[in-house]
Amino acid sequence: MRGLVPGLASPYPIGESLPGVFRGDSFTQRWCSAMDEVVAPVITTLDSFSAYLDPATAPEDLLPWLAGWMGIALDGHQSAERQRELVQIGVELLQWRGTARGVRAAVRALFDLDPELIESGGTASSTQTGTPLPGSDRPELLVRLRVPDPEGFDVRRLDALVEMAKPAHLPHRVEVTG
């Protein structure tokens, strides 16, 4: 990701920290200068490491890496600004991952549409014995999304997003309608 930066000066030149006997040796100074060229980007990166971890200031090529920390896969369909927004939203949504609220928010963030979630489970209470149990005995999550153009919509992106945002143990299906 990072590499040499031509002309970047080291804030801590190695040659200046050597004992006096080596400061006058031209070979040692040239060798130290070459090492300074390698170490300078490392020092600069470490000095500004907090900026690398902030989606607003991270270099573009690090955004997929930051997203990967949260289990988000950026698919390259978005501009750099949109990727920054998605990583920031991902930080906020991480606490809701695996919940209905998290699935809704993730779909809304990526597609700017509100999904309909249909879950097989349920809860209920009754004062009478023999009341049927709510929900279904087969766990499943159905995510239905109404879009303007169902034929041109990439269902695989929606499926991958739901796979990431839903509870890991829960099978799911996605439906896209007009």
Rank of each mutant, 00 (worst) to 15 (best):
E119L: 11
L93D: 09
R2Y: 15
A9T: 11
P41C: 07
D114K: 00
L18P: 04
I72R: 11
Q83Y: 04
S79C: 06
P41E: 12
V42W: 05
A124G: 14
I118Y: 07
R138P: 00
A58M: 10
F22K: 05
W31L: 15
A109N: 06
P167A: 15
S26E: 15
V147E: 06
P148E: 14
L161I: 06
P132T: 08
D137W: 11
F153K: 04
P11V: 13
E175V: 11
P55N: 11
P59L: 04
G178S: 14
R157F: 00
R23L: 09
T28E: 07
L93R: 15
V91S: 06
M1Y: 09
M35D: 01
G152I: 02
L141V: 09
E175D: 09
R157S: 13
D159K: 02
L161M: 07
L141S: 06
R2G: 12
T28H: 08
L63G: 06
V176G: 05
A9V: 10
G7N: 09
F27K: 13
S126Y: 11
A56Y: 04
F27G: 01
G122R: 09
R97A: 11
A160F: 00
R156M: 07
H77A: 14
A67G: 03
T177M: 11
D47S: 14
R82H: 09
G122C: 08
Q128W: 10
V174F: 01
P148S: 14
F27D: 04
L113M: 10
A73L: 10
S48K: 11
D47I: 00
T127P: 00
L86D: 03
P19F: 13
H169L: 06
E85L: 08
P148F: 04
S120C: 08
L4N: 07
R97Y: 02
P13I: 04
Q128V: 10
P19E: 08
F49K: 00
P6Y: 04
G24S: 14
P134F: 02
A56N: 12
L170M: 14
V38W: 05
Q95K: 12
G76C: 10
P139I: 03
L94Q: 08
V143F: 13
R97E: 14
A58R: 11
F27Y: 14
A106I: 04
